[in-house]
């Protein structure tokens, strides 16, 4: 399990060469190639083939690669998994997860496919999409069932359909689900990725919703348009001041350790271990500067 920097996950329909080629230029932390909802039934084979070739030969400048496969209940899911695992993407996003049994089965399958492809077993992470009421109830068991499971996300449209309710702009109907996903993800130190904001012309609306996601404890958000990447990254990035504070905390803590000092305080606040760890995490994640290559 891990907790990588995954602020923005940019959906790219896997059947569009121009979009695939440019996917990495928008600054998304993860590129999420989609074989599921954005691909017409008649083009599933073409999209799969195109994605395989693309992942095998294109260089995405070290951006993390995720692939959303079709549900394993559909006739495309298994074929997707069998063709995508050997290429070794970083994450496979699996729709319609509602029980731990599904995850255990998928985990085993992936391990088998990894071995066959000479990949380190456990190399590929899983992101589970929770899209049913049952899935929400089983969240903890689902997360606990596999070491591969490194992120949770919700499929809001399917979930509200499953519950027989309407999706609203206020989003109260998703409050409990979102909170629960964030809570379980935090407990198991994995990412909680919020669902997309569909109106890509409404950047203010996006910002508002993303701020709310962050407040609830999400660590990132999926986006459906390159224009959305900046805002989502910005919301999930600590301010320069927060980064400076973190550096100060780490500096003082290492000094205290060196000189055998006990408790330290920065800006009038006691620094205990969780705060120190949080500071280190911020620096690790956000202080990476691009150097000239």
């Amino acid at each position: 399990m891990n907790n990588k920097l995954r602020r923005s996950m940019l959906y790219i329909p896997a059947n569009n060469p121009a979009m695939i080629q440019d996917a990495f230029i928008y600054g998304a932390d993860t590129i999420l190639f989609d074989l599921e909802d954005s691909i017409a039934i008649s083009e599933k084979d073409a999209a799969r083939e195109l994605l395989i070739e693309a992942l095998n030969s294109l260089n995405f400048n070290n951006t993390e690669i995720a692939v959303r496969i079709n549900s394993l209940d559909s006739k495309f899911g298994l074929k997707d998994l069998k063709s995508i695992v050997p290429i070794g993407p970083d994450i496979i996003r699996i729709p319609k997860i509602e029980t731990k049994e599904q995850i255990i089965k998928i985990d085993k399958l992936i391990t088998k496919l990894e071995r066959k492809a000479n990949l380190q077993p456990g190399f590929i992470e899983i992101m589970a999409m929770i899209e049913t009421a049952k899935g929400v109830l089983n969240l903890e068991k689902i997360v606990a069932s596999s070491e591969r499971l490194s992120a949770l996300t919700l499929g809001a449209e399917d979930l509200t359909t499953d519950m027989g309710i309407k999706r609203t702009s206020l989003g109260r109907e998703l409050f409990l689900t979102r909170s629960k996903i964030a809570l379980v993800a935090a407990a198991y130190k994995i990412n909680a990725i919020d669902t997309v904001f569909s109106d890509f012309n409404d950047l203010n609306g996006l910002k508002k919703e993303t701020l709310q996601s962050k407040e609830l404890g999400f660590t990132g958000k999926a986006v459906i348009h390159p224009r959305q990447v900046d805002i989502v990254n910005h919301v999930f990035t600590p301010s320069q001041e927060e980064i400076e504070d973190a550096k100060e905390i780490v500096r003082q803590a290492s000094q205290a350790e060196e000189f055998g000092k006990g408790v330290i305080a920065v800006k009038g606040k006691m620094v205990d271990l969780p705060i120190l760890n949080r500071a280190k995490e911020i620096i690790n994640k956000y202080e990476k500067r691009e150097v000239i290559k």
Binding site: D45, A46, E49, L50, I52, E53, A54, N56, S57, L58
Partner: peptide
């Protein structure tokens, strides 16, 4: 090239 290969295969 990758797209040409994929489309030909499909």
């Amino acid at each position: 090239d990758y797209a040409i290969r994929a489309r030909t295969k499909t």
